[in-house]
Design a protein around this nucleic acid. Structure first.
Lengths: 222, 222
DNA sequence: CACTTAAACGGAGGCGCCTCCGTTTACTAG
DNA sequence: CTAGTAAACGGAGGCGCCTCCGTTTAAGTG
């Protein structure tokens, strides 16, 4: 972890302190803090670049590289995100929100089966971030368990919307619901974290979609 | 973790490779590899210093510091222990062995209740290492699950020996067995990893010993 | 506008990680 | 005892982490 000279005890309290900061920061983030224009700009840019960097290189990517690519000093990055975990968490939340928003947007723009398929592809990226986040938070996951559980709720909600639409207009078979699909996707998030994981997951989505399209038009199971 | 430039994929395979090395190294460690005299010396010295350093500063201590204190170059440390985890694991095993050996040695040297108490104090250090190791191995723990389970077996075995001796000569109460004691000690290893943990654990041992001595001479429960 | 000032910036500095490779040294064969 | 050699050594170098603090700048104020 590179905390270096810090002793064990001080390390622990350090982590706890930082985590406590997260929680409170999270709470008053919504209310009283209008950032200065440049600060807001830099922060947004950092999150954007970080999201791309994490997706491409994993959460262990160099923070200095992210700052550099965002065109800000490393100090700026650390002021906005006091630890790597803070940054990862923000990216994760953004990813989850994007995924939920995408459900509606894709439904409006594509045929319902294509929307579902595309959404699943994005789901893969989301899971990748989630894994990274889990690895990054390590032992602290328990402390942040709500983070995972409540975003998970919202995400599966948005899947439901897509599945039901596709079933309704007969582009996929009618004898499945969102829970079935999620179950079928479990291979994605429970598969071991190997280098080929992403490709494997993409194939799984293809396979699953073929299965869903086969027998399209079947009457709903209920 | 400071893997820096290494991308996500290469990071994963890197870890896997190193871990694979551990396993195989572990296997042929017993058989065909007589180290050169100086190598053996340096290795032993590193483990010794590392054990002290981990105990004092936790597993996140600087490896360069350990190498320095051992009077060897950082390169030497890394040749013997390709990752921090390797070193921690060796220290952990050593600790566990020491703990088992101590049981016999303490039993021979001290009154049986004092032996038990002293052993518990050392148990605290052992658990501290175990925690550090767990944190250090992170996600990889599953891969090394045997490491924990089988040392655990041996350790609880050595506790049994002490408890039975103390019960037999009447220095502690007779209506408990090793499993009861282990159960009472659970506060030590399941307590949260706070800065005061060690002190708290020491008090627990004191408390437990008082309880055990109270009513000494009681007939064995069976 | 000009001025003020708190907020934001950013990079140098000090430390640790890990690798790579030229140098040293323990063993062995003669 | 000597020479040869594989093994072991160790530290420089390049990178990343994070902090600290002098400098810049956005945003109120008259």
């Amino acid at each position: 972890m590179g905390l270096g000279l810090a002793g064990f005890k001080s390390h622990i309290s350090f982590v706890e302190k930082k985590l406590a900061e997260t929680v409170t920061a999270e709470q008053n983030a919504a209310k009283a803090k209008p950032l200065r224009a440049d600060a807001r700009r830099n922060r947004d840019r950092l999150v954007e670049i970080a999201a791309a960097a994490f997706a491409e290189h994993g959460v262990d990517t160099s923070l200095e590289g992210i700052a550099r690519r965002a065109g800000v000093g490393i100090g700026t990055l650390y002021r906005h995100f006091p630890t790597r975990e803070h940054l990862v968490e923000v990216v994760y939340r953004r990813e989850a929100e994007g995924l939920c928003a995408a459900a509606g947007e894709l439904a409006a723009r594509l045929p319902s089966d294509a929307a579902l398929e595309e959404w699943m592809r994005r789901f893969i990226d989301y899971i990748a971030t989630k894994r990274g986040l889990a690895a990054s938070l390590r032992i602290l996951m328990t402390a942040n368990s709500t983070l995972f559980s409540d975003t998970w709720q919202r995400v599966s909600q948005s899947l439901r919307q897509l599945v039901e639409a596709a079933v309704a207009d007969g582009t996929i078979r009618g004898d499945v619901d969102a829970t079935d699909v999620l179950h079928a996707l479990s291979g994605i998030y429970s598969a071991p974290d190997t280098p080929e994981w992403r490709d494997r997951s993409r194939r799984l989505v293809k396979l699953l979609m073929d299965g869903l399209r086969f027998g399209a038009g079947t009457a709903p199971k209920d």
